[in-house]
Nucleic acid binder design. Structure first.
Length: 103
DNA sequence: GCCATGGCTAGTA
DNA sequence: GCCATGGCTAGTA
């Protein structure tokens, strides 16, 4: 039986370039709709180890959640390279770029 | 803008 | 103890 973390990691790995998922979406897909916060922890501490596309996770509003200015800019650049568009407020249109995970 | 929620990794002993 | 959320309330206009 897979743990929540295992499932979440697998799901995150399946997000294709040019698409994004929200924290809550990943949590729900991993079987625990309220564990959005846990997803932040996974990304924070396991991204490099598991080579996760951490930049493809945004918050429910389609905003970049990172607080550090340099890291924000880095994430925005990575997304744009993949074809994700951000408006002048750096908002992502989730209707267009959300990856609808199903399995 | 506050705070309940969830599930555990990293790092020391 | 940590955390890069999310949802809901109180309080103002």
């Amino acid at each position: 039986m897979q743990t929540f973390t295992d499932k979440a990691v697998n799901i995150i790995k399946q997000i294709p370039p040019g698409k994004v998922m929200t924290y809550g979406q990943v949590a729900a897909a991993a079987g625990s709709p309220r564990a959005a916060r846990q997803v932040t922890r996974i990304l924070h501490s396991m991204s490099s180890k598991h080579n996760l596309p951490w930049h493809r996770i945004v918050n429910k509003q389609g905003e970049i959640a990172l607080k550090d200015e340099g890291a924000r800019t880095f994430q925005i650049e990575k997304l744009q390279e993949e074809g994700v568009e951000l408006d002048r407020s750096n908002l992502i249109d989730l209707a267009r770029f959300r990856f609808n995970f199903s399995d």
